[in-house]
Amino acid sequence: MSDRHILSLGCLGLVLLFVASLFIGAGDLSFRTIANGEMDGEALRLLLVSRLPRTVAAMLAGASLAVAGLLMQMLSSNRFVEPSTIGTTEAAGLGMVVVTLLAPGALIFVKALVAAGFAIAGTAVFLILIRRLRLKSGLLVPLVGLVLAGIIQAAAHFVAYRADLLQSLGAWSSGDFSMVLQGRYELLWIGAMLGSVALIAADRFTLAGLGRDVSVNLGLAYERVVALGLVIVSAIAAVTVATIGSIPFVGLVVPNLVTMTMGDNGRRIVPFVALWGAILVLGCDVLGRLLRYPYEIPVSVIMGVAGSALFLMLLARRRTAHG
């Protein structure tokens, strides 16, 4: 099958999921009502104010998180990292706690901006740490990330605990689309826009993934590309945390599955990564609405199970010999 075939099949799947997502949920809205033209104001409002934004939010978050994961893997030349396993997401959460503490009434945009600042700092610390690692094992890098994430998380917990913000921190650290309404998710578009910058600069990021020496040799402004990637990844993590909370493993599993079959050439794979990210997150969200209908299971919980299981499979498949 050619790339184009796969892409169109994926898009078809996404459209089907999109339609399903519009009509699944606790509120009363069935496909037949619309088909029969019996849609009243109530149903229309449910569709436009809640279901549609929710569906769009899931797609945007999934696509941009998956692309952020891919970028992070290129920047650290390592397959087993993504924003939520290296401290980026946790730092964004810490930023949200701090800004909520200092300026409770700030606009969500301002909060996301502060969170992005924290996320950039956290990611920069990670990149500096892994450059200092004497033993550059491919698997030590994600470990350092996980521990750094744990430390930042502990700091966030501590501040939240002292400031009585544990509940809010809980909301930021577990992604959930059930609270998405029109007017409260639009920041995610910024994440998606930044994600498309990744497509434009795909060649540069692919080169950066080959390491500093190769990049510099080919005349790439390596540090600048890393900085650009850092900002994109952090901003995506921050807007996701600020609007719906963090969703683990999307950025890890999707790029890995795609590169396994299609390779690392950014220009070729970024659209696929975005597409599968959207499908995976929207699929998990729909599943979360169905499993215990009419109650909901947050998308982050489902992704935690599915993602870690998939990741273990990836690890098992990987031949030990490769670095």
Binding site: L139, L143, L146, P248, V301, G304, V305, S308, L312, L315
Partner: peptide, 21 residues
Amino acid sequence: LYKLLLIGVIVGVLFRSLSGF
């Protein structure tokens, strides 16, 4: 060792996620 460690860490995450689920 690294693989073992990473598997262990992720197994932990899987267990915690399953519990949460």
